[in-house]
Design a protein around this nucleic acid. Sequence first.
RNA 1: GGGGGCGUAGCUUAGCGGCUCAAAGCGCCGGACUGUCUCUCCGGAGAUCGCGGGUUCGAAUCCCGCCGCUCUCGCCA
Length: 623
Amino acid sequence: MTDFLATAYRTHAAGSLRAADAGNPVSVAGWVHRRRDLGGIVFLDLRDREGIVQVSFDPSWTPAEVLAEARRLGAEDVVRVDGTVFPRIHGQLNEALETGEIEVRATGLEVLTRAEPLPIQVDYAADEELPGEDLRLRYRYLDLRRPGLLRNFVIRHRAAQAARAYLSQQGFLEVETPLLTRPTPEGARDFLVPSRMHPGEFYALPQSPQIYKQLLMVSGFDRYFQIAKCLRDEDLRADRQPEFTQIDAEMAFVDEDDVFRVAEGLMAAIFREVAGVELETPFPQITFAESMARYGTDKPDLRYGVEIVDVTEVLQDADFRIFQGVRGTEQRIRGLRVPGGARLSRRELDELQEVAKRGGAAGALWVKRGDDGALAGQFAKGVDEGRANAFYEATGLAAGDLFAAVVGHFRGANEGGGVEVDGALDELRRHLARKLDLVDTTRHAWLWVTEFPVFDWDAEHERLVYAHNPFSMPEDGAVQAVLDATREGTPGAEAARALYAMGLRSRAYDAVYNGNELASGSVRIHLPAVQQAVFTALGMDPDEVRAKFGFLLEAYRYGAPPHAGFAFGFDRLVMLLAGAGSLRDVVAFPKTTSARALFEEAPTAIADAQLRDVHVQVRAPGA
RNA sequence: GGGGGCGUAGCUUAGCGGCUCAAAGCGCCGGACUGUCUCUCCGGAGAUCGCGGGUUCGAAUCCCGCCGCUCUCGCCA
């Protein structure tokens, strides 16, 4: 299967040898993974990209000088071995190795290069701790020799190839877009590149190919895709790198359903190719508003079913002061029925306070129903029998269940602009599902979240900000509302708030997988007047728009087709496919959380002459 | 920018109510061993305890500062 790896140095890949090769003379080449010297005979575990095979040196088939040389081998020496494939005798198979049914009986050995003792090992026992990540990044080329890590890059490659094959077959053209571009006016910080030829001017590295792909639609390319590098100069996390990769695509003459069909097909192809999993398509769809109401987040994990229940009407008159405080306000009492949650210990229930606070609530309120069906817990005393029955009816709370509630303002019912606590229920939901093992890890729970808001409200600056993407087309009715509101220029604080309160929706969507936002996209604005109006609503005056987006609006004047697209976070997708815990495990040469490259030591100070070339003078921090 | 955690032989860790505490496993070096596969057995080398300062008769251990890594909030689609 890997005969194509046959070269001047070898006839086979060592790791691809199988029982069917028995009897064949072979040459293999690779690294000394491990050596077992029993005195008279020597075993060698030889490793190459395809795996590990045992080589045996024995006086009955190995010349004495070859055996002597084998005894001098050290870990990670690079060697070439000539020999013959033999089946292992009964009782000596190694089920841990894919090559475990055979071994190579060596007749020749050539040391290609010697390895000095390594600063970090390649071979680890199952229970052995890996070295610190900083060391492994410093010696990344050694860490990448670990079969477990190498495997992630095989997965990554196959995912990329599956994406290319599928999209090509669907009529998409792969087009590269510039890395040296102009700064992005909104969103994340840009990485900047000084221009030598134009003193004082700078390029920016692209945060995404967004504008370019829309221009390609104007050009009539019809369908575009690219596996694109995106760069953002923001603080890092375990699942965030300063440079990352997207599967970026855009289509002309389409609506949401056309995009969803392609994106679903793309994911199905990747999961089929890489994981052997048949995804169920089409993916379910829910609106942003519904997702917030049912799960408290715009990226719900649907591998378990716990949903938010509003119990305001049932409980606001209970004999419990916190509940009574909601009457006559916009506050609501909402919570989660957690099956089997009654078995949590007092200490575990106390933890819920912190969990809820993380989500912005003042705390969590809980009751549980014991095996005898009786209600116990924080607000149990305030709930008389009649009210309890209404409560059970509303929530489905059964014996053995827990109900965890939060009181406060919720999105969609918050005209007064109070602090929203939807996130607290999201935190509680995820925390309790994990704690009680409610997550069905065999499921692949994809969904589309649609109809994101056009605007969010920036309370601090009393202005509108875009919720999803400033290029997303508002829904039919919302287009007119935006045009009306911006006829006289940017609306004032009062009018802006009113516009926000209308709850306008856009034709923007996310693809969510097991609680991870993996893709984002929208039907784009292709009408210059509408795009202009959205920019105006966001507070840009006409001159500013002209300076920042003039080329896009100009392009739209000459016949832009309706278009829509998406971008999948490729690194994150591969991370999930590979079961890796960190993005750094699926990026060949990642940066640390302080955005350093430990192996090549970037970033680095630059000599004055080189700075002079690009007309840049370094200013000390704070100066 | 804020907060938490970590930093002891090449690697992973123990030691951290201060004064025989610098220890173990892996790796490395030397020796023995003819069927191992985390080979086994015997012996050995290897550490200015992240850096700088302070407290103390005495600091890996206590205090302050800095650096690095990491998690996280802000930020980020």
